[in-house]
C-alpha cells in the first residue's frame, strides 16, 4: 500500500511530503552596507535532500537561510518553497510550516521539554491528545527517555538540549527545515554522535533541509548537495560532495575544501562501496569501514594490501594501495 501523504499525516510511516526549495537570484542588502550580504543566489534544493551552506565566517550563510522563513527580508529576487514565493505568504503561517533550529537552540527556559516541543502544534490548534502523542513520538525519535518530558531545559545537557531543539522544529512535521550550525556549540565527540543520529533520522523522515555550517568536513558528511559561498554572498559552487572534491570550480573552493581533498573523497565511501580485488592477505579490514580509515589502517601496518572481511569474519575480497590511489585520483 503506498503511503498517504496528507497535510496532517503523522507517524513514522506517514510524514508530510517534503517540498522543493528554490532560490531565484535572491539578494540581501543590509541598509548601510556597501556590498550585498547575499548576492544573486540561485539554486534549487530537490525535495527530501539536505543542502549544506558552507563558507567562511561572514559569507552570508545565515542571511541566505533566514531569508527563507523571512526572518530577514529579501531585497531582490525571490525564494520559492514548494513552488510558491515566500513573499506572498502570511509570515507567521509560513514560519509555522518551516522547522527552524539555531546554534544557540533558543529553548524556552520557563517551559518544560514537552511544552517546548508542543509550541507550534499549539499555535496550530491541535487538540491535547494529539499533541501529547506527538511529543511522545518525537522524544522517541530523538532518543530521549519519556520521563525527560517534564524536565526544564536547565536540567538537560547541551547535546540533549540540541536534540530537543530539533524535535521542537520537527513537531508540526514541517516539509522544510532550516538549521543554522545546529551542532556548532557541541564538543567534537558529541557532535559526531548527533550528526550520525541526525542522518539516521533524516533517512526516516526525508525532509528538505537547509543546513548551515562553516565546517567543510561537516558539510561533506551531512550534505546531499553543498553550496559553497564566498565572502560577499556569492555562490562559488553548488554540487554534490564528491563532485566538489573531484572538480572544485575555482581556486577559492579548492582552498576551502583543503589540501587533503583526495583523502576527504575517500571518506565519502565505504569499503563495501568499491570494487574489491582478490585478497592478497595483509591486515583485516571490515567491509563497513570508511575507505579513508582502511587506508589509514594499511599505512599504520606499513602494508600494501588489506584483507576485507564481513561481519562474520569471512574474507570477501582484497584492497590494495594501488587501487586506493586510483580511487583517490579518479
Amino acid at each position: 500500500m503506498p503511503p498517504t501523504h496528507t497535510a496532517q499525516s503523522e507517524g513514522p510511516s506517514g510524514y508530510r511530503e517534503a517540498v522543493e526549495l528554490e532560490f531565484a537570484e535572491a539578494t540581501k542588502r543590509y541598509p548601510g552596507a556597501d556590498s550585498p550580504a547575499v548576492d544573486g543566489l540561485s539554486l534549487t534544493v530537490p525535495a527530501g535532500e539536505i543542502c549544506v551552506f558552507v563558507g567562511p565566517s561572514g559569507c552570508g550563510k545565515t542571511t541566505a537561510m533566514r531569508m527563507v522563513n523571512r526572518m530577514i527580508d529579501i531585497s531582490s529576487g525571490d525564494i520559492l518553497v514548494g513552488g510558491r514565493s515566500v513573499k506572498d505568504r502570511d509570515v507567521d503561517e509560513l514560519r509555522r510550516e518551516i522547522g527552524y533550529v539555531i546554534q544557540q537552540i533558543g529553548l524556552f527556559p520557563h517551559r518544560t521539554i514537552a511544552d517546548n516541543i508542543a509550541t507550534v502544534p499549539r499555535l496550530l490548534g491541535w487538540d491535547r491528545p494529539k499533541i501529547n502523542a506527538r511529543v511522545e513520538e518525537l522524544l522517541d525519535l530523538i532518543g530521549l527517555p519519556q520521563d525527560m518530558s517534564k524536565r526544564y531545559p536547565a536540567q538537560l545537557s547541551g547535546g540533549q538540549r540540541q536534540r530537543v531543539g530539533v524535535a521542537r522544529a520537527l513537531a508540526a512535521d514541517p516539509p522544510l527545515m532550516l538549521m543554522d550550525e545546529p551542532f556548532g556549540a557541541i564538543d567534537p565527540i558529541n557532535r559526531e554522535r548527533l550528526q550520525n543520529e541526525f542522518l539516521r533520522l533524516q533517512a526516516e523522515i526525508r525532509k528538505t533541509i537547509v543546513f548551515v555550517t562553516h565546517d567543510i568536513d561537516e558539510a561533506i558528511k551531512m550534505g546531499d548537495r553543498i553550496a559553497i559561498l564566498q565572502v560577499g554572498g556569492k555562490l562559488a559552487q553548488y554540487a554534490t560532495p564528491s563532485e566538489i572534491l573531484l572538480h572544485p570550480a575555482n581556486e577559492f573552493v579548492e582552498d576551502f575544501v583543503g589540501a587533503d581533498r583526495a583523502l576527504k573523497r575517500l571518506a565519502l565511501l565505504r569499503v563495501s562501496d568499491i570494487e574489491l580485488g582478490p585478497s592478497n592477505g595483509g591486515p583485516s579490514i571490515r567491509d563497513t569501514a570508511l575507505v579513508r580509515d582502511a587506508l589509514s589502517d594499511l599505512l599504520q601496518h606499513g602494508a600494501l594490501h588489506g584483507n576485507v572481511v564481513d561481519s562474520g569474519g569471512r574474507t570477501v575480497g582484497g584492497i590494495s594501495m594501488e587501487a586506493l590511489a586510483r580511487l583517490a585520483k579518479a
Binding site: N69, M71, V91, D92, E93, L94, R95, R96, E97, I98, Y100, I102, Q104, I105, G106, L107, F108, P109, T119, V120, L123, G165, R168, A169, L178
Partner: peptide, 23 residues
C-alpha cells in the same frame, strides 16, 4: 530574556503579541 529564545519563537511563527505573552 534570552534573545535566542525570542528568535526561535519568531522563527516558529509566533506573532508579536504571542512572543510578548508566551516568552
Amino acid at each position: 530574556t534570552d534573545r535566542d529564545a525570542v528568535d526561535a519563537a519568531r522563527g516558529m511563527g509566533l506573532s508579536g503579541a504571542q512572543v510578548i505573552r508566551q516568552v
